[in-house]
């Protein structure tokens, strides 16, 4: 291997790694606030790229139907529950989140996004569609069992992924898409050619890690979200609703997922089911940070990207085998670093 090849692989690795950083960060965010290992995050990314591609092709993206169906179900469930408890505030919030907001977004996507609309507008609507899916998923899948163990939540998350990918195949079809690049000509730094897309992904993942890290370390609002994961009742008693905290986490997850999809759409071909493997690679990264520490998780994700790049050079068929086997030493290291001790509080 020459230095040039290594440099190219390194660049590839960092670019891929940055994508996994975006994923790992969201996984840490969602886990610290809700204790859910949010496997479907990858699906949101794939759906985002597929949605944008559909807008580009002048179709109505299938996301619209997923959103409409999901919102309707969530509205029935949340509205029914609130009505049963005669909880007016709950009813109003359900009508807003699962009625008015999704309806407005769906109508916009149906009628206000012509084929010749500017790319930026299409991206904005894509973001709105995917972001809105986040809280709906939370309501349908996780909210009723929010107090369950992480293991039960993980099973639910995996089930949600299978549901999403099955409906994804139905509405998007089996073809892959690659969205058009939007950032202009590539940059040339010495011998390296770097697309602006890549720079965008790296920059946004860096900014994201920094922002989230600061938010949860420094701000009282960040701590309030964490409080909801530590003790649900305690959080309620200081005026932080655990449900609202979970919903917030999922809105952020949806938004970051949408942006990630738009950013990586031009870099790689995405299929309706690409999200799963993407999400798991992000997860391997997040594990390095014990699903809790943003910078460490980001480093882990970067490492996954690099390993993947070099693995595909040496043994491209076994690329995924190598990446997923990587989790074994990582887990081993984590189990040594944080032995599971059961201590009883006095």
């Amino acid at each position: 291997m020459t230095f040039d090849i290594a440099a190219v692989l390194f660049q590839d690795g960092v670019a891929n790694g940055a994508v996994y950083v975006l994923l790992a960060t969201v996984l840490v965010l969602v886990f610290t606030v809700t204790r859910i290992v949010f496997v479907p995050q990858g699906d949101l990314i794939a759906f985002s790229a597929l949605t944008l591609a559909a807008f580009e092709a002048g179709h109505t993206p299938g996301t619209v139907w997923i959103l409409a169906l999901g919102a309707a179900l969530a509205l029935i469930l949340a509205g029914g529950k609130a009505a049963g408890e005669r909880n007016l505030a709950g009813l109003a919030s359900a009508a807003l989140w699962f009625g008015a907001v999704p309806a407005a977004i769906v109508l916009t996507a149906l009628f206000l996004v012509p084929k010749e609309a500017p790319l930026l507008w299409k991206m904005a609507v894509t973001c709105a569609l995917i972001t809105c899916l986040g809280p709906i998923l939370y309501r349908l899948v996780f909210e009723p069992i929010a107090a369950a163990s992480p293991l039960v939540l993980l099973i639910a998350a995996v089930a949600a992924h299978f549901g999403l990918s099955s409906i994804g195949l139905h509405v998007f079809g089996a073809e892959g898409v690659r969205t058009p690049g939007f950032a202009g000509p590539p940059l040339v730094v010495g011998d390296l050619v770097v697309t602006r897309q890549t720079v965008g992904v790296i920059a946004s993942s860096l900014v994201l890690v920094g922002l989230l890290s600061l938010f949860f370390r420094r701000s009282l609002s960040g701590k309030a979200l964490l409080a909801a994961a530590h003790n649900r009742r305690g959080a309620e008693l200081i005026g932080v609703s655990a449900t609202a905290a979970g919903r917030t986490a999922f809105i952020v997850a949806g938004l970051i997922g949408a942006i990630s999809g738009i950013l990586i759409g031009p870099m790689t071909t995405l299929y309706y089911d690409s999200g799963f493997i993407l999400g798991l690679k992000g997860f391997v990264g997040a594990i390095v940070g014990a699903l809790a520490i943003y910078p460490l998780a980001a480093l882990g994700a970067l490492l996954v990207g690099l390993v993947e790049a070099f693995a595909s050079f040496w043994a491209s068929a076994y690329r995924d085998v190598i990446v997923f086997t990587l989790i074994t030493p990582v887990l081993f290291w984590r189990s040594l670093a944080s032995p599971h001790v059961e201590e009883e509080a006095e």
Binding site: K223, L226, A227, H230, N231, R233, G234, A235, L237, A345
Partner: peptide, 11 residues
């Protein structure tokens, strides 16, 4: 102030 205290343990 609940009987179970409900503090945020790791904080």
């Amino acid at each position: 102030v609940p009987e179970t205290r409900d503090l945020f343990g790791p904080m």
